[in-house]
């Protein structure tokens, strides 16, 4: 559903809603996967992000998002200098990630402490974003809801347990999607919820013996 505030917005640092604001949002989402500013990131720019990214500040915007700056944060302009002064290791590469991928796409390999994840995301225009892949699992995350992602052993009743934890926190599930690479293999769950889930939700989910890891992706758009 298109929101009026998606059309009159976002408030953003220019020059391009897809190459700057959307790029920043993709950085913000990747940051959530490791629960904070990643120390080391490999940033693989695809298509138009690779071809015209420099002139649009796509590199600065992605780095800014990774450090937690939002699309209207004027520090985007000097984000690469901040990366350097903070001693972060962000490496940019130009690549081709496949013909079928949206022209404005990036693969981010983020590392923070013991956490390491790979995310593929696209910027669809007007600042809207779409994550298509996390750690090799196909996903559909738009970042316009609070989203919980988790990797779990494929055990029976797992969805019921997680739904119960969310219900206890008074969190309403908007969408739920489960994918796995093979039968009996690990299951990747993406749950979009209407309300921001409390810290206890992540702690309770983490306590489940069959959950390998879980993170909350912030709502990044209207």
């Amino acid at each position: 559903m298109v929101s009026l505030l998606d059309i009159i917005g976002p408030v953003m640092v220019g020059p391009s809603s897809s190459h700057t604001a959307g790029a920043c949002r993709l950085g913000l989402l990747a940051r959530c996967l490791v629960g904070g500013t990643p120390e080391k990131v490999r940033i693989e720019l695809h298509g138009s992000f690779a071809r015209t990214g420099e002139g649009h500040g796509t590199d600065k915007a992605i780095a800014a998002g990774l450090m937690g700056f939002r699309p209207d944060d004027e520090r985007i302009r000097t984000a690469l200098e901040i990366v350097e002064s903070e001693g972060l290791q962000y490496r940019f590469e130009k690549t081709t990630l496949g013909e079928e991928l949206h022209p404005n796409s990036v693969r981010l390999t983020v590392e923070r402490g013991a956490h390491s994840h790979v995310m593929v995301g696209s910027s669809l225009g007007a600042g809207r974003v779409f994550i298509t892949e996390i750690d090799g699992y196909p996903v559909e995350v738009h970042g316009n809801c609070h989203t919980i992602v988790l990797l779990a052993e494929d055990v029976k009743g797992s969805i019921a347990r997680i739904a119960a934890i969310l219900a206890e926190d008074d969190c309403n599930i908007a969408t739920l999607r489960l994918t796995r690479k093979e039968r009996g293999g690990d299951a990747f769950m993406v749950i979009e919820v209407d309300e921001q889930p409390g810290e206890n939700v992540r702690d309770d989910i983490k306590k489940l013996a069959w959950v390998r890891w879980t993170h909350r992706l912030d709502k990044v758009s209207a």
Binding site: G9, V11, M12, G14, P15, S16, S17, R77, G125
Partner: peptide, 21 residues
């Protein structure tokens, strides 16, 4: 011109067309 200089604007509907509204 603000947009092209990486200033803050409202994308309405996009940054490229942000001057008209």
């Amino acid at each position: 011109e603000v947009n092209a200089a990486m200033g803050v604007i409202v994308a309405a509907p996009t940054a490229g067309g942000a001057g008209i509204l």
